[in-house]
Design a protein around this nucleic acid. Structure first.
Lengths: 242, 242
DNA sequence: TCTTATATGTCTTATATAGGAATTTTGATG
DNA sequence: CATCAAAATTCCTATATAAGACATATAAGA
């Protein structure tokens, strides 16, 4: 099917946008191989060079992965990716490792608060699911996490009594929701009674609070997460490459 | 002058590396306009397309800026860039603004400690310069900063009694040292007597500590900076685009 | 002098061609 | 069936050409 130029901006950009739409709509699923550059060029009615530029742009944005000789694949969540892009706590030596153990505090459902509605772009009367857990690093509890999701987007999640440790893979495989980017806001807070108990620190001890909003490819916010971390033996890594 | 292929890797990569070298060596200075794509192609003995790919890569890495019709320029530090890439504290509304006022605590010189030597890649007996200041946001003291630099790389800096607020521009214009990337490590700490006084908080209040190492284009670490921030009314922003 | 064309220089977009590199598939052979 | 060689597939590198967009310098005219 030839897609005529929609008219806006350069061809490679329009081509990129069409492909993003396919990923966002699930026409191309995570892990799936895309048609070859030549086939896509045919399909979109542009030259192979134009498709190539669009694909390389998508690769730069981590929406697809390209492998010489094998093909181009829609990005999917692996432990590697989760560690590299979405987990920023490291031990002093620079060692980063995903928590392998965590203690589930609870999964529950409730009406969305005003804050939830704003953060997740929900309408009144929407329901949300809360997941609370404590994650271990180096054998000790270090992160107290509170996660909020729209119940509608994650049906039957509230009944889940043992969500896996790596949630983004779970979201993707089970609910077809792929997290693509996130924004985190950090501040220092004093541990309350709850965190003190969960993390084994004194009340009032300084903790690093990370508030994250995670979005899909098309920019829809699907997860809000508050992590309170004991940074006695760990630190948050932020690379400024630009 | 034709530069024969040095032999390693693809041509566009070699071309990129040659141009990085020119920037790192100061052959091309910050703000300076590069020769046109065609002239560079001539000079390096490759095609214009290859030079173009190399230049676009450099632009992606923020080493150069490209403007249609005007030319390609070596990146230099402006207030804009400093704010966008190197200043991550924002007010709750998402408003970010560089501190316009700051109180200089002192500039002094001393022998490098073992930590300094490691952090800045110095040899024994090297000297360093310390700058300490308190930066204001919204009219109130929010950041207590301690900056350490190699005295050799910043001659006569120790005599400076009023360094400007935007140091990276100062480093570049006065000492020819351009900061290109940085790594920050964050943790939550409790305010000591010193920070409590400087920032107007109680002793033991939670503060966000940011330890930054800033590097030049060729990866030499030139600045170590410890910022302790009152995050009562501000937060650190971290975007995860990848 | 000021304004308005014109020309020039530079980057941008789009296409085409050709060969190389990495991987997978196919087919022949034992 | 197992193994190895050949072919096919896919992405990667490099070059060339041509036209368009944007900005600035130059020249002509009022």
């Amino acid at each position: 099917m030839i897609q005529p130029a929609t008219g806006q901006g350069p061809l490679y950009r329009q081509t990129r946008d069409l492909m993003i739409r396919r990923i966002a709509d699930g026409d191309w699923e995570p892990g799936q191989r895309l048609p070859s550059e030549w086939d896509l060029a045919d399909e979109f009615g542009v030259s192979q060079g134009t498709v190539r530029k669009a694909l390389n742009d998508l690769a730069d944005e981590n929406m697809v992965l390209r492998h010489q000789g094998r093909g181009t694949f829609v990005a999917s969540h692996t432990s590697q990716r989760e560690l590299f892009h979405f987990f920023h706590l490291e031990a002093p030596g620079g060692v980063r490792q995903l928590p392998v153990t965590s203690r589930l505090v609870g999964v529950s459902s409730r009406r969305a608060s005003r804050d939830d509605m704003e953060r997740l772009g929900l309408s009144t009367n929407a329901h949300v699911v809360d997941i609370q857990r404590v994650r271990d690093l180096g054998g000790k509890p270090v992160i107290s996490e509170h996660i909020t999701l729209a119940a509608k987007r994650f049906p039957s999640l509230a009944q889940e009594d043992d969500p896996p440790n790596e949630l983004y893979q779970f979201y993707e495989q089970r609910f077809g929701m792929t997290v693509h980017r996130a924004v985190e806001q950090l501040r220092a807070i004093a541990a309350g009674a709850w965190e003190a108990e969960q993390l084994g620190v004194k009340r009032g001890a300084p903790l690093l609070e990370i508030n994250r909003i995670a979005e899909t490819v098309d920019g829809t916010p699907i997860e809000w997460r508050r992590s309170r971390c004991n940074t006695q033996n760990h630190q948050y890594l932020s690379e400024i490459l630009k």
